[in-house]
Amino acid sequence: MTSQLHQTMQTLVSVFHTYSSQEGDKNKLSRRELKDLLQNELSDYLETQKDSTSIDKIMAELDENRDGEVDFQEFAILVASLSVACYDFFCENQQ
């Protein structure tokens, strides 16, 4: 039986690859792929549609190696940071 955490990690990888496989390098998110992922998967947490430069800002913050793309490690940092930021909200709504 697969643990809940194992399933969560599989889901995280699967979501990443759903978007990273749309164009170019299959193991990295281009700016467009990142925008699609953020708008479709995290729109409740990020105000990406109201600020046209927000995708560029997020990309600049995530793209640690400055290659113009976001790899899985850089993406995982975003998910972990959002999880920490939303920790209290998640705890309150679990009960």
Rank of each mutant, 00 (worst) to 15 (best):
V13Q: 08
K26G: 07
G68C: 01
R31S: 08
A60C: 02
E69C: 13
Y19W: 13
A76R: 08
T53R: 09
L34P: 01
F90W: 04
K50A: 14
A60Y: 11
F72A: 01
G24T: 02
Q73V: 06
E41R: 12
K28C: 06
N65T: 07
T2P: 06
S21R: 14
Y19P: 06
E33Y: 05
L62G: 03
V70I: 14
I58H: 12
K57P: 00
V79M: 13
N93Y: 13
K57H: 09
S20M: 07
Q22F: 06
E41M: 15
Y19G: 11
C86P: 00
D51L: 05
E33R: 03
M59Q: 14
F75M: 00
G24L: 05
D25S: 08
K57A: 13
Q94Y: 05
E33I: 04
K57Y: 02
D88N: 05
D44E: 13
F90V: 12
D51Y: 14
T11I: 06
S3I: 01
I58E: 03
F75T: 03
C91H: 07
S52P: 10
T11R: 13
H17D: 05
V70F: 11
Q73P: 00
V79P: 00
A76C: 10
H6G: 03
S83Y: 02
L38N: 10
F89G: 03
S3N: 02
E92I: 07
Y45P: 00
Q10T: 04
T2I: 04
E23H: 15
K28V: 02
V13P: 10
Y19H: 12
E61A: 15
L34D: 03
Q7C: 01
Y87F: 06
S21G: 15
F89H: 13
K35M: 12
H17F: 08
T8K: 02
Q94K: 03
I55V: 15
E41Q: 15
H17Y: 12
G68Y: 00
E69D: 09
Q39F: 10
V70Q: 02
Q95M: 08
E64F: 03
Q4G: 01
T48H: 04
L78F: 03
D36E: 02
Q39I: 11
D44Y: 04
T53D: 09
I58K: 06
S54G: 00
Q22K: 15
T18R: 14
E74A: 09
N93F: 15
T8E: 02
K28H: 04
D63R: 02
R31G: 07
F90E: 00
Q95D: 07
D88Y: 05
Q94R: 05
Q10S: 04
D71M: 10
C86T: 12
